[in-house]
Amino acid sequence: MTTPPANPSAATRSWVVSNAPGTLAEVRATVRDVLGAWGWTQDRADDVVQIVSELVGNVIRHAYGQAELTLTRTRDGVEIGVGDRARDLLVLQRPADGEGGYGLRLLDLLSTGWTVEQHAVGKHVRAHIMR
């Protein structure tokens, strides 16, 4: 994961996330640190970390490349952005077993809204979480 800007209170923080082992744990810890610097309580930060973990984890597992992660402070919360270079769109599915398929359901439950933008190369998912 590339290093975020030095200013912890910056309104937007961006990273390029690789699919190297241990990256997802590093992403979770970094997101917690940023949210802490922004004054988020632990329980609300947990929701943001869960969504980031699902979205970035999907890129690592299914897109086989780097994810672009952005956190942007908004007036009433945070916007999460995760981009990748895979052409496959996200599909809300009914989980067949305990192995997966819950990510978009969590996104529905924990966010105030989310979108997927398809680009010529890849897609970008945005989700908003109220503080």
Rank of each mutant, 00 (worst) to 15 (best):
G22L: 05
A67R: 12
V17N: 03
I60Y: 09
V49I: 14
G57A: 03
D47F: 02
G100P: 12
T115F: 02
T41Y: 00
E99A: 07
V27D: 00
V48S: 10
L109V: 14
G77R: 05
S53T: 15
H62T: 01
T41C: 00
I129A: 04
D47G: 08
D88V: 07
G98T: 04
G22N: 08
I51T: 13
V121A: 12
P8Q: 07
Q66T: 04
D108E: 04
V16Y: 10
W114L: 06
D84E: 05
Q42D: 15
D84Q: 04
T23E: 09
L35R: 01
L106T: 00
S111W: 03
D84R: 03
S9R: 09
H124F: 03
E68I: 05
H119S: 05
R105K: 09
H124P: 00
R73W: 08
G101N: 00
P5R: 11
T2C: 09
L90C: 06
R131L: 13
V34G: 11
D76K: 13
A45I: 10
Q93K: 14
T115R: 08
R13K: 04
Q93I: 15
W114K: 02
T70Q: 15
V31R: 07
Q93F: 06
D33E: 15
D47T: 06
W40L: 02
G98R: 04
T72M: 07
P5H: 12
R126W: 01
D46K: 13
A63T: 01
D46W: 10
G22T: 09
T74M: 12
R32L: 10
I60A: 09
Y64G: 15
S53V: 09
G36S: 03
G57R: 02
L24V: 14
A120S: 13
R75L: 08
R32D: 11
D108P: 00
T115K: 05
T41P: 01
N19G: 13
R105C: 03
R61F: 02
P8G: 05
S53D: 15
G103L: 03
S14C: 08
D88Q: 12
A6N: 08
W38S: 04
R75K: 14
T12E: 15
G65Y: 01
W114E: 04
V31Q: 06
V48Y: 11
W40D: 01
G98I: 05
I129W: 06
T72I: 08
E117S: 14
R44I: 00
A25E: 13
H62P: 01
S53H: 14
G98K: 02
R13H: 04
T3G: 08
V121R: 10
D88P: 03
D84N: 13
N7S: 07
